[in-house]
Design a protein around this nucleic acid. Sequence first.
RNA 1: GCUCCCAUCGUCUAGCCCGGUCUAGGACAUCGCCUUUUCACGGCGGUAACAGGGGUUCGAAUCCCCUUGGGAGUACCA
Length: 480
Amino acid sequence: MTVRVRFAPSPTGYLHIGGARTALYNYLYAKAVGGTFVLRIEDTDMERSKSEYETLQIEDLKWLGIFHDEGPDKPNAKYAPYRQSERQEIYTKYAHQLIEQGKAYYDFCTEIELEAMKEKAEREGRDPHYEGKWKDPAHHAEAMTRIAGGEKAAIRFKAPKKSYTLHDKVKGDVVYPEGMVGDFVIVRSNGLPVYNYCCVVDDMLMDITHVIRGEDHLNNTVRQLMIYEALGARLPEFAHVSLLIGHDRQKLSKRHGATSVNLYRQENYLPEALCNYLTLLGWSHPDEKDIFDKPELFGIFTLERFSAHSAMYDLEKLKWVNSQHIKKTPNPDLIKMVDELPGNEFFKKQTPEWKNSAVEVIKQYADFINDFPVMVEKKILLDHLEMTDGLKEIISWESTPKIIDYLQGELSKVTSEFVTAVELGAWTDAVKKDLAIKGKFLFQGIRAALTGQDHGPELKLLIPLTPVNVIKKRLAQLKG
RNA sequence: GCUCCCAUCGUCUAGCCCGGUCUAGGACAUCGCCUUUUCACGGCGGUAACAGGGGUUCGAAUCCCCUUGGGAGUACCA
């Protein structure tokens, strides 16, 4: 039997980092075993669901390189539709079937009555389970006539009095004791079905074989187990992955800052880096590798390597992973990305050769794509020098003014826009021989003179990228 | 409250299932050093963890129990 997995987001906001991670795990697993990855939209909460969010979330998934095989935008006749809001009749049909079988019943209780029952139960030290009159099959006939008369009622599932065991791929055997949950609503009185119910109906009908989802659903699973049983459906494999938490160890949410994928996209993080990092948060590579692309995982991703405890989301490591991916990215791709950045006019009008050299240098130091224009600005175009302590010290050496004078002389003869590494080499040699300066006085002096800074990328790479008139300005400032 | 889940360096983790090879390995961060082409690159090295207590065993990070701590669920949300 072929493996079918699904990612089932609610379109109530942007794609969340945590959601992206579970989507990724599902995707990787499908790829690893040659299965099918289904995207299902759980929009039964009409008030919070918006179709724009569905579109946005799909775009974010695409940006991350997580592609689904089936979904609302890629229907398969056998399983469509993929939006729960469009599967109304299906849920209704099975709910009626459960009522006929005596596994569910209509409940006419009002919110107030329910609330009162709950309070009473709590006062008496009982579990706040539903114990209303409609639970009693004796009222079945009355319920049916009231329904026939057009009255509205919720449909409540009769929770069997027994314990359930889930064989979870991550958590191992989880035992839900008898009486853990009471009878629960599967269809609201307004006719809309509830998550725990449609989730099962859909997974059953869509032939889902593996449910990989967040641990926040672990307790819900007992309800789902009951419904699978009532429906006589085959149980899929379950893997409840641990949750992502923030620095306060609370479940990751908006208040922890940048938690929507969209933000990372806007900040030009590399999608492959984000995926890499997210994969690491709860799954480990068998060879302990920590930098990889998705395709490398297709052959080795297994459900066995999930960790059982929650993982703290940490921007520092993501930054490092991103920098590693930048180093791996071919120059033409980097050039394209940098060219598309807003502003950055100087870079954009340079020759392909210049761009290639620039990108080659900067990629060694950049953590983010957004660092590229910053580096161009601060390392290549900088002409307003800042007198740092390091710089002051180099200038105070008696050899440095001589270097500055010499270089100013040489530069005044240059007519091209840029100097070459060869010219720079010749100057360095000349300073060394003619001025008899060597060691750090030589190299740091030249660096300070030409760049106006006491540190930075390799000079022979950096200087040929810097316009001669900019270098001249720096020298003039150093003299003055 | 009740139920469920979890517990290795500050962080992500390997090891745990099938006890000895673990004076616990890697990565991020941090600290130090190295490189007469400086550096935010790189290289080398340091600091840093089996939550606590009981068992079981010749032997426990690994198995069992308790405590503590953290998390989740307890909706006509998903």
